[in-house]
Simulated scan of single mutants.
Amino acid sequence: MRLDKYLCDMGAGTHSQVKQKIRKGLITVEGETVLRPEYQVEPEQKVCVEGEPFTYTEMEYYMLNKPAGCVSARTDEHCRTVLELLPKKKRKDLFPVGRLDKDTEGLLLITNDGKLAHLLLSPKRHVDKTYEARIQGQVTREHVKAFQEGLDIGEERLTLSAVLEILNSGEISQVRVTIQEGKFHQIKRMFQAVGCEVLYLKRLSMGSLTLDESLKPGEYRFLTEAELAKLKLEVGVEG
């Protein structure tokens, strides 16, 4: 691929910044200075920017324990984004797979694998997403039944059948919810539909991918090869 594209993909700067670095003689390939942005480079070759080595990575997969207070977006003018929590990332084209509300915590997959993301989010795939929630109001078996049958949250259709597990019922209830959709504020709207309010929400899993509880809010790590392989197998992605 072109040297300037290689460097842009790896976050060495904007396209104009990268070109300027190349023309200033700040880039070497296999120890030789290269002055042409269009120079063809192979991913396995050793590329350095001002003496700092860059290793090309085509795809990156991160598990983030999203903290409350940041938004699930690539950029935002007013709030900190989840991508700002990944200082060691290489790719500049990463994005969060699905959105968690600003005040929602928990599992968030961040990658640049568009195909995998599309399949995980596709309504046709019915990928389970499990959340832990603290609810204002007593959650009962009637609520469990209503979640199973589908709720009117102001959309054209009722929500798909969801599993509501009561962990503790009282003035403040503790529950676990599994849904197969990802509508805007869906869980909050589902509880509103039965006269309750979500006080706290945390995503625990998405398909076979489960939040590593050793990750504190704001911490992240690479997906393991086993986690990635299982996730791809689940949605039918080869390789």
Rank of each mutant, 00 (worst) to 15 (best):
residue 23 R to N: 04
residue 151 L to T: 07
residue 209 L to F: 07
residue 236 G to T: 14
residue 129 K to M: 11
residue 231 L to R: 01
residue 118 H to P: 03
residue 228 L to S: 11
residue 83 L to R: 10
residue 171 E to G: 08
residue 27 I to A: 03
residue 107 L to W: 06
residue 118 H to F: 10
residue 37 P to W: 00
residue 81 T to N: 09
residue 1 M to F: 13
residue 92 K to R: 10
residue 171 E to N: 13
residue 139 V to C: 12
residue 106 G to W: 01
residue 66 K to L: 10
residue 131 Y to L: 09
residue 183 K to M: 02
residue 49 V to C: 09
residue 42 E to R: 14
residue 122 S to N: 12
residue 186 Q to R: 05
residue 12 A to W: 03
residue 10 M to S: 11
residue 66 K to Y: 13
residue 29 V to F: 06
residue 132 E to H: 15
residue 10 M to K: 08
residue 63 M to S: 15
residue 179 I to K: 07
residue 171 E to R: 15
residue 50 E to W: 04
residue 106 G to T: 04
residue 235 V to K: 08
residue 155 E to K: 08
residue 70 C to H: 09
residue 220 Y to A: 02
residue 87 P to R: 05
residue 179 I to G: 03
residue 85 L to P: 09
residue 5 K to P: 05
residue 15 H to Q: 04
residue 152 D to K: 07
residue 203 R to M: 12
residue 28 T to S: 10
residue 47 V to E: 01
residue 29 V to W: 03
residue 181 E to D: 06
residue 194 V to N: 08
residue 61 Y to A: 00
residue 145 K to C: 04
residue 59 M to C: 02
residue 186 Q to N: 10
residue 8 C to E: 00
residue 157 R to P: 04
residue 15 H to S: 02
residue 206 M to F: 09
residue 82 V to P: 05
residue 225 E to D: 11
residue 18 V to R: 12
residue 122 S to Q: 08
residue 206 M to C: 15
residue 229 A to C: 12
residue 43 P to C: 00
residue 139 V to I: 14
residue 112 N to L: 02
residue 141 R to W: 10
residue 159 T to A: 11
residue 97 V to P: 08
residue 23 R to H: 11
residue 110 I to V: 06
residue 166 I to G: 10
residue 192 Q to L: 14
residue 173 S to I: 06
residue 104 T to A: 13
residue 121 L to C: 04
residue 210 T to P: 06
residue 133 A to P: 12
residue 27 I to F: 01
residue 26 L to P: 00
residue 215 L to A: 02
residue 65 N to F: 12
